[in-house]
Design a protein around this nucleic acid. Structure first.
Ligand SMILES: [Mn+2]
Ligand SMILES: [Mn+2]
Ligand SMILES: [Mn+2]
Ligand SMILES: [Mn+2]
Lengths: 159, 159
DNA sequence: CAAACAGTTTAGCCTTGGCTAACAATATTG
DNA sequence: CAATATTGTTAGCCAAGGCTAAACTGTTTG
């Protein structure tokens, strides 16, 4: 549980920069990231399906494959998983639809995604870059940071 | 390559929110994220090894396992990979060291990580939260955004 | 309405990144 | 210095998320 080399002070170089965080806190950082990685792809699928339903009226596997730049086989497998998780309903060869739980997840993810995207634009990041960055960052932004981003964006707009 | 349902405008609901980006751009978002995921764990290992070397004088597998909250077996396997990638050198039962390439990656990752962390703190995020968010966000921040974050932090400090 | 095309599913493969259990090497200590 | 504790390695397992190739279903069109 604790670091080896107890007499670190004796061997450490002279310019240590920022200190290392305590082991438990440091471990928490990585664990939180691993956790986010478990859910983020699911969130992106559900969010995209919600967007396709909202903007196109239907969400076909082929559209998802094209929009994600992934093979149709990959999408088909993932749809089975979403089904098992009871996030979508699907009849073979028909459009997907979101369950109640799926709609809730889609809304939450969409809202969070928008906050991050609008924040980056408010910061001065070009739209195309902001979109790319937001797609990855969104899954690693705490509620605390999210709230601050939202306030920042609003203040920026009242100027 | 293009969406199905060409007469989307006819079937789309009345509150479309932000429009969907063009397929190619949308695909690029997800592809960039997938790309980042391929390298981020490697970067975190190399960065941590660099930090342990800087602050402790040595980087032992057990320390990495504790700091990452991961089993020693997982670390051992990853070290083999880092060796194959020629990012670290290691003798059995001895401390790890970074190769030239490893040092370069560690520096780059550390710098990027610090910019994101300091930016979040400058935004007003609590330290513990900022550390957690930065650990995940850092891998998804473009150079463009990174530069803007750095400027923001500096301006905040000159107040 | 049959053929061609488009969309979907399945099977089987691969890599990554986790884990536990068992074993091996080194370090610490009675 | 032998016994014990710590550290490191190996083997074998698993799930996730990619892929290609082949089969199947549904739609469009000559
Ligand atoms: Mn999203
Ligand atoms: Mn995303
Ligand atoms: Mn980092
Ligand atoms: Mn990280």
């Amino acid at each position: 549980m604790t670091d080896s080399n107890p007499n670190a002070a004796l061997t450490a170089p002279s310019i240590p920069g920022d200190a290392l965080p305590p082991v438990e806190q440091h471990a928490q950082q990585y664990a939180t990231v691993r956790n986010a990685h478990e859910t983020e792809l699911i969130e992106d699928y559900v969010e995209l399906i919600g967007d396709l339903l909202a903007h196109r009226g239907e969400a076909r596997a082929a559209d998802i494959a094209n929009r994600m730049a992934v093979s149709q086989a990959t999408v088909s497998k993932m749809i089975r998983r979403l089904n098992e998780l009871e996030l979508v309903t699907s009849k073979p060869y028909r459009s997907l639809f979101l369950t109640e739980a799926g709609q809730k997840m889609a809304e939450t993810s969409r809202a969070r995604h928008d906050i991050v995207l609008h924040f980056l634009r408010a910061l001065g990041v070009k739209d195309a870059t902001a979109r790319i960055d937001a797609e990855g960052m969104e899954h690693h932004v705490s509620d605390e940071t999210l709230a601050i981003m939202q306030r920042f964006t609003e203040q920026q707009q009242n100027n």
